[in-house]
């Protein structure tokens, strides 16, 4: 199997269409014959990362690569960065505003979900510069 690549520009302004890239990834993985269990893990990880870019970083890009033995998802934004990654990783920690809470986000469960759903999660972030998150799910 050749390496299969997908690229998405994630629009920061649109909460309504948030999740579209993740839905697209799910569809593609299904077409590639990836198992349901792996699709589920990728869907969760990708969705949480996509939503975080929309809510916290005014959008960004997502690159998904499907290798014979693993799926790699790279989410990159030029948002505010994460000042304290260890704190951000804690279940229940969120800086989401009231307005964002009203839409159902801001439980502080996104990053923990990403960690749980992936075999490897790497967060590179710099305050004022942006955040790059790399997640690997093994097949």
């Amino acid at each position: 199997m050749d390496v299969f690549r997908l690229h998405f520009d994630i629009d920061g302004g649109s909460f309504a269409s948030a999740g579209n890239a993740s839905v697209e990834v799910k569809k593609t993985l299904r077409q590639l014959g990836v198992s349901n269990a792996v699709i589920r893990r990728c869907s969760i990880a990708m969705y949480e990362g996509e939503i975080n870019m929309v809510i916290h970083a005014d959008g960004g890009t997502a690159d998904v690569e499907v290798y014979p033995d693993r799926i790699v998802m790279v989410l990159e934004d030029h948002g505010p960065g994460i000042p304290d990654v260890e704190l951000a990783m804690k279940e229940g920690y969120s800086t989401a505003t009231e307005q964002i809470h009203n839409m159902g986000f801001g439980a502080g469960m996104g990053l923990p979900n990403m960690k749980r759903s992936s075999d490897d999660l790497k967060i590179e972030t710099k305050v004022g510069v942006g955040t790059k998150i790399t997640m690997v799910v093994r097949l």
Partner: peptide
């Protein structure tokens, strides 16, 4: 559930 990340996970 109403908190989307809980539902997702």
């Amino acid at each position: 559930g109403d908190l989307l990340s809980w539902v997702m996970g």
